[in-house]
Write a protein that binds this DNA or RNA. Structure first.
Lengths: 218, 218, 218, 218
DNA sequence: TATGAATGAGCATTCATTCAT
DNA sequence: CATGAATGAATGCTCATTCAT
């Protein structure tokens, strides 16, 4: 019996997580107002009534999905922070994975965008977003500041650069929302926001752009 | 009374424009689904019924507001194109005014974002958006290509850089939506995406980004 | 000036009549609830506001159109009454012109049907209808009674036969409403309801069971 | 719990049928446009929202109610067809039951009238009506043709006589709509449309019919 | 008169949420 | 736990009616 109870608990937890995943996708696609509980339930393969066993109402499900998405980002930064390597390397990692994220799971970013643009977001969501924003900005700004000290990153207010990075990434997610065949942004382009214009020691190493450049893609 | 008739026509046109303006604001703030016709009407100071004298239904008002916003952008680029000056100067103008736009009338950009993320956008809107996107990208990419020829702009696929610029600007508009006291992004930061570094930019150390992203959770 | 005023009056009267004609058509086609003032106005070539110069509201226009249609019928019967000839000849005339009416101006009959089936008809309409019904029935029943005396009309309660005639005609009008290419009902068929089965002097008239038999009921 | 599931299904079906019954009544009384969903729901004792669990919108409920009513008529004719007896007996049955129907459930006929006079009927309804009309006419005309062969039915295009019968019955239903105390039409009167006069029908006085008569139009 | 802008009651329809089974 | 019938608040939209011009 305790085993069964445990399993129940676990099952419930898994269900909840799955539900969050589906909700994330649906909310990202439609937004809070246009998303229908029934749609989420259908996409989960459960009855819409069952959704209310896990979340008291739509807003709470939305909020939970947001928190989930935000935690993923925070975990990501924590992960990067733990990673060894020079600040520049870690910045590259961050940028690389941001682009990857835009390509592979734009819903997460899109959901964050939905939350940010939600006019009637409950306080909890609002706070979580503010925390998330501050956290992301601080993490990136920290790397940038370090990078500036090592000379790998161009000068400028680190926070501004961090804001620009995040904005750019969110903007890319929106583009993907409209056109899911949009090619990824070359890493170099993103790195331009941070990379120092000239090598710290000033030599002449590289010129050719390393990415497949598509000069005309109409 | 042709004069009166004319005035009527004009008055009607003005009313329609005013309505579009209000609609743009409300739709930008709430999105298509959450915006209520009654709210728009109230913000206009008219009865909700009157809205239907100008637009047959909410979607068409939304579409018209979008169209309006997009035309503003296209007009802006046409304007820049006509402006004399070096490519670089014109790029600076574009960037400056984009930042300005984010600060002063983020609703326009936000409305575009709403349209881009609208899952059920009618074909007309979808087409207008595609046209707008192509147009903006081409304009900016054109300037960038010219700038690259004069050596003012860093190498890289012009279209990619243009995409990055637009994405960044849209991302900034979203930030503004959440926090209207957010300071403007310094022009220099935005210009980093385009400006040529010191002569032939250098690179060292680059390794392949290693860690598997946990952000992508399918 | 008095001439002008008179003309105005006359013009107004003509307009009113024309309006009634259009209203009759539209109400016949759509019914009271589904007919739109704007539609009637448009079909008249005037603005919908002007309709309210002639009739205070839709119901009154409907009522007036009904009265108009009913008067046409009553005038028709008065006309027949004045006509010289045997009762049978006048019955033929009545039937002929009823069929003609179904073919040429089914709207009038259809409008009457609309009025009869109108659940929320104002008292005035209801009264007019009752009067019309009584009047028509009496006129026809009178002719039938006379015809029975001359032996041209088959026996049977004259009022019942009159009801049947009117019902048949209204039913035909409905058929026309659905299919405007429906051919006219041959006069002979309609006359069967009235015509005596055998010459007045003949014998051996009837054999078949005259009583209502209910052979099978599911 | 297959039993429960079955019962659910059955209950749902019953509810749907009951709703159709109520809808038939209300639509017959008010017509499509004037009938309010709330009214139907109230008359059912359910909330208006629940109506939409059974039918997606008012039109479909209307259509279903029509379909239902028409099927009742078609079933009736099929039933008569299966009944043994001479053509004349079956004709009597048909007429008897038509009169009965007018007295006992005029809503069914009235609903058909509503459908026939509905200007904006959806194609499905229009088709069903056309089918119904053809079916009824053919059935009756068939009996009439047989009856003519046995000499019980007067000569004349069977289809015309069938049309007259149906029209008469529909007209009676309309009368009932206005006055529910109207006495039933005596069967003899209705039968006059069909019954043969004296043997090979004698005629005197008859002048040429003034209207273009098409005696045979099958 | 004539017009059509303006208003708002009224109604169809949707969908979050509850709850009996 | 699961289901989906049931409810009703909320909102889009229509259209009769009024009224300034």
């Amino acid at each position: 019996m305790p085993r069964t109870a445990e399993q129940f608990e676990q099952l419930k937890g898994e269900r909840r997580q799955a539900l969050l995943g589906v909700a994330r996708r649906v909310f990202a696609r439609k937004g809070l107002a246009a998303a229908k509980i029934g749609e989420i339930a259908a996409e989960m393969g459960i009855s819409y009534g069952l959704v209310y066993h896990y979340f008291p109402h739509k807003e709470s499900l939305f909020a939970a999905a947001i928190e989930d998405a935000l935690q993923a980002w925070e975990a990501f930064f924590a992960d990067v922070q733990r990673t060894p390597g020079t600040p520049w390397e870690r910045l590259e990692t961050v940028c690389t994975r941001m682009i990857q994220s835009v390509q592979e799971s734009p819903e997460t970013l899109l959901l964050v965008v939905r939350a940010l643009t939600e006019d009637e977001a409950p306080r909890a969501v609002r706070d979580a977003l503010a925390r998330y924003k501050r956290h992301c900005h601080e993490q990136i700004a920290g790397l940038i500041a370090e990078g500036q000290r090592t000379g790998d990153v161009a000068p400028g207010a680190p926070l501004d650069i961090a804001r620009a990075l995040m904005a750019l990434v969110q903007g890319l997610a929106i583009s993907r929302a409209m056109d899911e065949h949009a090619p990824p942004l070359p890493l170099e382009v993103l790195l331009r926001l941070v990379k120092a214009g000239t090598p710290p020691a000033a030599e002449t190493r590289r010129r050719a752009p390393a990415s497949p450049s598509r000069l005309a893609r109409t």
